[in-house]
Design a protein around this nucleic acid. Structure first.
Length: 202
DNA sequence: ATGACGATTTACT
DNA sequence: GTAAATCGTCATA
């Protein structure tokens, strides 16, 4: 996907990413899935965003890069989450990728996920990447990928599946998850998912 | 140097 | 439905 796809406002990018494919090349092997759930983070004005109020730290530095870079952060002492940076350089907005529908490398994903659990019960396909931290586990994404240029085609990138954004009727909209601390901003309709898709987080 | 806190997931009641 | 797991990060002092 070209730079121009990402250098747009985060809501537009969040919607346009639905139905496109996230690809991770791990040890020469392709792991991939169709993006089915995203959230837009609007930057300095957005109380739920890591860059709220213009915060610029070592942790969120890549959010300030131009659209098309990855912002990977560590949270809750054990989880990573992946964002696709949107907008222009110096405009710290991003899209959190919350779920994908696995397409390639399901067995590798399963073993990466199972390695982190106590019980050995087998995971259904729907449990592999239906959540922002699950997706990172399944694809072997950690801080080593923070700041990676997703337009470069190595390590991790977005592959174009469709030219146009899904029709509005195929996209469901709701408030973002896990940001209750953000007051009014917690209620804004900034979460997007493919209507009826079974791989969306619960 | 310290303390409070997560853009979550899992296990257990 | 409730709670534990687990630690980097950042604001405060």
């Amino acid at each position: 996907m070209a730079r121009s796809f990402f250098e747009r406002d985060p809501v537009t990018v969040a919607r346009a990413l639905l139905g496109q494919r996230l690809v991770r090349v791990l040890d020469g092997q392709r792991l991939s899935g169709v993006i089915v759930e995203t959230e837009a983070y609007l930057g300095v004005e957005d109380k739920a965003a890591h860059t709220f109020g213009g915060r610029r730290t070592a942790r969120n530095a890549s959010m300030w890069l131009t659209g098309g870079h990855a912002y990977v952060y560590f949270t809750y002492g054990m989880h990573y989450c992946l964002n696709v940076v949107a907008g222009r350089e110096g405009e710290p907005v991003a899209v959190l990728v919350r779920a994908i529908e696995p397409v390639e490398g399901l067995n590798v994903m399963r073993s990466l996920r199972v390695a982190r659990r106590r019980t050995g019960a087998k995971l259904a396909d729907r449990e592999l990447a239906s959540g922002p931290a699950r997706l990172c586990q399944a694809m072997g994404i950690d801080r080593g990928l923070d700041g990676v240029d997703l337009t470069r085609g190595n390590g991790m990138f977005i592959e174009q599946v469709r030219k146009r954004t899904l029709p509005a009727g195929a996209i469901a909209v709701g408030p973002r998850i896990g940001v209750d601390y953000a007051g009014e901003w917690a209620k804004k309709p900034l979460r997007f998912w493919v209507r009826g898709n079974g791989h969306v987080s619960k």
